[in-house]
């Protein structure tokens, strides 16, 4: 028994090492969203493409779609733009933009320069809609189902890996559900 006690420090070390090892690979930026499975908030805002047109929740697609929070100042948004454009062009699903805390003329220029994957982009100049969506910085991407319920949230840039491994499966799940 007393021999076994000698191993207690080794045991403590192993447990601690395991916990800290795991901690090394946790990303502190991926916070669980409390808004998963909650309906989208109500809003009534203009769009970048047509400043005199107000859109609301009722104008959003009635099928599964992506909601992408972006800004012309945001470099990762530029990085993920080709993936989103390809998805929109291939008809994977409609993509709606939220132009978050940006200047509308700069947003329009950005879209002219880089091309737009969006059906339209909602102008959220003061970030009020962003707060209701629990957004803390562009880019963030939500998968919304046909009933306007938030089903998945991706924080940060979308690269090919996260598109293939995280977002596509989330979209597929929501679409499969919509068919049944």
């Amino acid at each position: 028994m007393s021999r076994l006690k000698l191993f207690i420090p080794v045991g403590v070390f192993l447990v601690l090492a395991l916990v800290l090892w795991r901690g090394l690979y946790l990303d502190p930026r991926t916070l669980p969203s409390v808004l998963i499975d909650k309906p989208l908030p109500e809003f009534s805002l203009p769009i970048v493409e047509q400043s005199d047109r107000l859109v609301s929740k009722a104008d959003l697609p009635k099928e599964p779609f992506l909601l992408n929070v972006w800004g012309s100042y945001c470099l990762p948004c530029l990085q993920e733009n080709p993936i989103l454009k390809a998805a929109a062009a291939d008809g994977v699903l409609p993509i709606i933009g939220i132009n978050y805390k940006d200047k509308t003329n700069l947003a329009q220029m950005w879209m002219d320069d880089n091309g737009s994957p969006f059906e339209f982009s909602v102008v959220d100049a003061d970030g009020r809609l962003g707060i209701d969506l629990g957004v803390y910085g562009a880019p963030e991407t939500f998968v919304i189902d046909g009933n306007g319920v938030i089903r998945y949230k991706h924080i940060g840039v979308i690269d090919y890996q996260s598109w293939q491994q995280e977002i596509m499966p989330a979209i597929a799940a929501v679409k499969a559900e919509a068919r049944n």
Binding site: R29, D126, G127, I131, G134, Y136, G137
Partner: peptide, 23 residues
């Protein structure tokens, strides 16, 4: 502050912190 993580809303100059203070 959800963006800068280790500061309170008071101490953060992040955009979202600004918005949350306003709220």
């Amino acid at each position: 502050c959800p963006m800068c993580q280790n500061t309170s809303l008071t101490g953060s100059g992040g955009g979202v912190a600004e918005d949350l203070r306003r709220e």
